[in-house]
Write a protein that binds this DNA or RNA. Structure first.
Lengths: 218, 218
DNA sequence: TAGATTGTTAATCGATTAACAATC
DNA sequence: TAGATTGTTAATCGATTAACAATC
């Protein structure tokens, strides 16, 4: 029984959910049974207040005087995240990055199920990646109509990203995991995008080093 | 001439810098000469106020009645980010992900320079990735002492992450780009970490789809 | 000069933290 | 019951937005 409509929950809270899920999962694996918000805060470098506020957006998972049962908490957050849904996912672009993501990520663990990989280059078709055969993009339409995947992972050059995204929406894709170095624009409501800019992330390190240098100089 | 000590600038602002740099770079490439905060806000889905506030943390780059000169702005933000520093960077782990990052990312574009790739598995040593020869980890110490790299990209299993990070700090590494699915703990000041959790990112899509389903049901 | 747009201060909004009564 | 710790309300803090005087 959710305490509020999910759409009322701030993105700040939602963004922290996967990290909660990770830490709680680790603790469950280690055999820890219960935890207080204070102890969890310590481990995650958060405040106890924030943890209690965050969890209470979704329900009263704790018990006064006791704390939180970790296994139960993990199950609840998993439900919220839709971990067991196994949303059908396709990867477009079987280059270095597409290949690595297919092989490296355990999609199941994250609520998704990889069902197809496509590449522009017909020569790549037929090669096997992560137990799947790479298909030529010419088969994309028929595949989507047949299989109805919901998530597309874009591992393509930025020049192709926007056009392909529009096409995929018309084929029924509702979510994009976009590695194309280009912020795709989605006007369609109910379609969500995670733009992953690895370049932005490493630039933060360059910034930090550059800044540290400067403060030494001054 | 910075307006404030860089350490006073909030991380919210800093995190937006790479995105500014990207958008401004695109506009320069397209030949646009000047832009007002209002026009840029429109393109980036921000407010004009926020753009002016953000840029003013670092200096008065604009001109009243005119706006901002894009080429100049790009140069300035590049300086702030340390884009031309070419910080020496090594990758640890030449598996799928390490290989893909080496081949896929243009480190130069992001203020870094890839100078070495290492792998645990001696069998991988000698294979070429991104114009570099993969080295066995047994050579890590001597390499770091000789070359003094500043950034380490961790593409290794989470079980190995913390120990290796500590070792690398003792070898002079100041920054980690951590893909190991584990939040490494750094007590050392002046050492920075970007924990990249690709799983967290794709879970957000699962969450969004799961949530959309629910609002339809209700 | 008049018009445009910045730099900057003040107002608003939202997120985090603190406090405490409820309750297991 | 007494102690612990939650759920929740109130206070604080910081980030975003609005407003406008400065100025190109």
């Amino acid at each position: 029984m959710p305490k509020a409509k999910k759409s009322d929950i701030s993105v700040s809270v939602i963004k922290r959910l996967p990290r909660y899920y990770r830490f709680i999962g680790e603790l469950v694996k280690q055999g820890t049974v219960r935890i207080s918000s204070g102890e969890l805060a310590e481990k995650m470098s958060l405040t106890a207040s924030q943890i209690r506020q965050d969890l209470n957006c979704f329900g009263g998972f704790g018990q006064q005087g006791y704390g939180y049962n970790l296994a139960e908490l993990r199950t609840e957050i998993g439900k919220i995240l839709g971990i067991s849904q196994g949303y059908k996912t396709i990867i477009i672009g079987a280059g270095n990055l597409g290949h690595a993501i297919a092989a490296h990520m355990d999609f199941r663990e994250y609520g998704c199920r990889l069902v197809g990989i496509f590449d522009n280059d017909p020569k790549k078709a037929g090669s096997r990646v992560a137990d799947l055969e790479v298909m030529p993009v010419s088969e994309l339409d028929s595949f989507c109509i047949r299989e109805q995947p919901k998530i597309a992972v874009l591992c393509i050059p930025k020049t192709a990203a926007q056009e392909l995204a529009d096409k995929l929406i018309s084929l029924g894709i509702n979510a994009f995991w976009n590695f194309s170095h280009y912020d795709i624009k989605i006007t369609h409501k109910d379609v969500v995008v995670e733009n992953v800019h690895l370049g932005d992330s490493i630039m933060m390190l360059s910034y930090a080093l550059n800044n540290a240098d400067e403060s030494e100089k001054e």
